[in-house]
């Protein structure tokens, strides 16, 4: 099956930062979360997908088509939401729509009005009168009103309260009831993804650490707690990272089943959150 989004060996070098050999594959019908700490390369990657930045080398395909050669066609089928509002503050919601809608071939006023109503956004309001959450919802309403098949969002939940975030997750779950659609979004608030994301791609310092199904990731890694005496040069190899304190240690095990086999009753193994995983992977690079 053709991937809805496919990135092959993508490279982009800046003076002090480099995206190195990025590979991502995503199938339609699913939600992929793109996680990593600030400055890891999430926004750069998204800008490269949207052709807002020029790549050095590599290949980006959306709906199986090259993202530069078929840029216009692809963008007609992408809904794009950025982390900050880029609308003119002085215009009303309706005026904003009038400016944006002609750019899309399949713009649908009915859908747009339905979303505005659902989100409780008054069409007569000026952009500057909208709260941050409302602006994000307006972006989303626009992104969803031209029959987009792929929704790409850069940090849509940052700065939003938990209620708006949970509403957004519901909208996303609704969207992929259609198995031809897909969602790719970056976030550093991983609790948003713990529940509904199908795939997680984790980027750190411009490199992909892993890109896999969330269930496989949470199944594989384990948060281990135990007494410091069980740590030696050999057992330390079982961990991505270890945090020692006065009374014991906590670490992220590369393979929780192996740890259970080797350490048995001597350690407690818990299910990690994506936050735990992100933390230990990024800590290691700090410590080395």
């Amino acid at each position: 099956m053709e991937h809805i989004l496919e990135i092959n060996n993508l490279n982009k070098k800046f003076r002090e930062f480099e995206l190195k050999d990025l590979n991502i594959k995503m199938d339609k019908g699913y939600i992929m979360g793109f996680i990593g700490p600030n400055g890891a390369g999430k926004s750069t990657t998204i800008k490269l997908i949207m052709n807002l930045l020029k790549k050095d080398s590599g290949e980006i395909k959306v709906f199986g088509m090259d993202n530069i050669i078929h840029e216009k066609e692809i963008k007609n089928r992408i809904g794009f939401v950025m982390d900050e509002s880029h609308f003119y503050e002085e215009l009303t919601v309706t005026e904003t729509k009038r400016i944006i809608s002609p750019f899309y071939k399949d713009w649908d006023d009915k859908t747009f009005n339905k979303y505005l109503k659902g989100f409780g956004i008054s069409p007569a309001k000026r952009i500057k009168e909208l709260s941050k959450g409302m602006k994000m919802k307006l972006s989303l309403a626009i992104a969803l009103s031209h029959n987009a098949q792929l929704l790409i969002m850069d940090e849509p939940t940052s700065g939003l309260d938990p209620i708006v975030r949970s509403e957004l997750l519901e909208i996303l779950a609704d969207l992929i009831q259609d198995e031809n659609k897909g969602v790719f979004f970056s976030t550093h608030i991983t609790s948003d993804l713990d529940k509904i994301a199908d795939y997680i791609t984790f980027i750190n310092e411009g490199r992909i650490i892993f890109s896999a199904s969330k269930d496989d990731i949470l199944e594989k890694y384990g948060l281990v707690k135990g007494a410091k005496e069980i740590l030696d040069n050999e057992t330390k190899q079982l961990f991505v990272g270890i945090k020692e304190n006065k009374y014991g240690f906590e670490g992220l095990a590369k393979d929780k089943h192996e740890v259970k086999k080797i350490l048995g009753e001597k350690a407690v193994v818990e299910k990690p959150s994506l936050d735990d995983i992100m933390l230990y992977f990024t800590r290691r690079t700090l410590n080395v």
Binding site: G29, I31, L169, A173, D174, D198, S213, K214, D215
Partner: peptide
Amino acid sequence: RNLAKELQISVIT
């Protein structure tokens, strides 16, 4: 897809 949405879990699950 509907079960995933209702239970707020991923489709893959």
